[in-house]
């Protein structure tokens, strides 16, 4: 489906958020954790998670890091340019699950991993009474690499979410933590026996974070990680995104740690 760029924001030196309006019949509304294939004719396609609100009245919002030719071209889009959108694809974070009623939430993001988790936060804030304690742990390489710093401050000030931030390298006067995001896990609020965790970030970070969350007593089937592989078709046919028995584009990207731990323990799997 053709979409048109309404607006774009530079988030960091290589990350851009694009806001897209449908130029024809829109795609179904992606749920938090799902992704779309963004297509630039003549350049190619890239799988990008929803980073905006999951709502029929809202535009489609995606946050893209310029890594290869397609993502670089997506980051260079101007207002009014057209983009092809296929999707949404994949398994989402399952926020509709009634098992989450009354749950404490641990949302753990590393780097660009905050982008697919932002729709989770929007939804949680919209239904704040449905949940117990909500903690957001955010890690990035450096302060200037942190996504959505204004929103982080706003969420933190509102008191609705306990937000803890950390960076690998800090400036002088950096008011938050220094170190890897896993070190923040002891700061989680709530009770581990009713905590659900949503984790997204680089694979190594997710592995440590998931182990640390499970080590703290959270059940491994309640630790949901959002995986990344080479998603091309989006519907489990082209084969590129396989991880063991899973087509990550179709069976994932969100999968329970209990189902992927052994796969992620093996290098180059």
């Amino acid at each position: 489906m053709r979409y048109r760029v309404r607006a774009h924001f530079r988030e960091t030196h290589d990350v851009v958020t694009v806001v897209l309006d449908p130029a024809e019949e829109p795609v179904p509304v992606p749920r938090p954790g799902q992704f779309c294939m963004l297509w630039l004719p003549g350049v190619g396609e890239s799988a990008i998670s929803l980073s905006g609100r999951s709502h029929p009245d809202e535009p489609l919002v995606h946050t893209v890091r310029a890594v290869g030719p397609v993502t670089a071209a997506l980051c260079a889009l101007g207002v009014g340019d057209e983009v092809g959108v296929r999707g949404p694809f994949g398994r989402d974070f399952g926020l509709d699950d009634p098992d989450l009623d009354g749950a404490d939430l641990a949302i753990v993001a590393g780097g660009l991993g905050l982008a697919p988790l932002r729709p989770v936060l929007y939804r949680v804030l919209d239904e704040r009474d449905r949940f117990g304690e909500v903690t957001l742990l955010v890690g990035a390489r450096a302060p200037e690499e942190l996504l959505y710093p204004d929103e982080l401050e706003r969420w933190s000030r509102s008191g609705a979410v306990a937000v803890f931030q950390t960076v690998d390298r800090a400036w002088p006067n950096w008011p938050h933590e220094v170190g890897v995001v896993t070190q923040l896990v002891p700061l989680l609020r709530g009770r581990v026996d009713r905590t659900w965790a949503f984790v997204c970030g680089p694979e190594l970070m997710m592995r440590y974070a998931a182990r640390s969350l499970v080590g703290r007593g959270i059940r491994p089937e309640r630790v949901l990680v959002s995986l990344e592989r080479n998603m091309q078709c989006g519907f489990g046919l082209c084969g590129h995104c396989q991880l063991g028995p899973f087509f990550v584009c179709h069976d994932g990207p969100v999968l329970e740690w209990s189902r992927v731990e052994s796969l992620m323990a093996v290098r180059e799997r």
């Binding site: 890594v67 290869g68 990344e228 592989r229 080479n230 082209c238 084969g239 590129h240 396989q242 180059e268 799997r269």
Partner: peptide
């Protein structure tokens, strides 16, 4: 047709999931 034996097959973020 694609082959899982090519390096680009598992391309991921400028690298490849199955380098070896």
């Amino acid at each position: 047709w694609a082959s899982c034996f090519s390096q680009q097959f598992s391309y991921l973020n400028g690298g490849t999931a199955r380098a070896g």
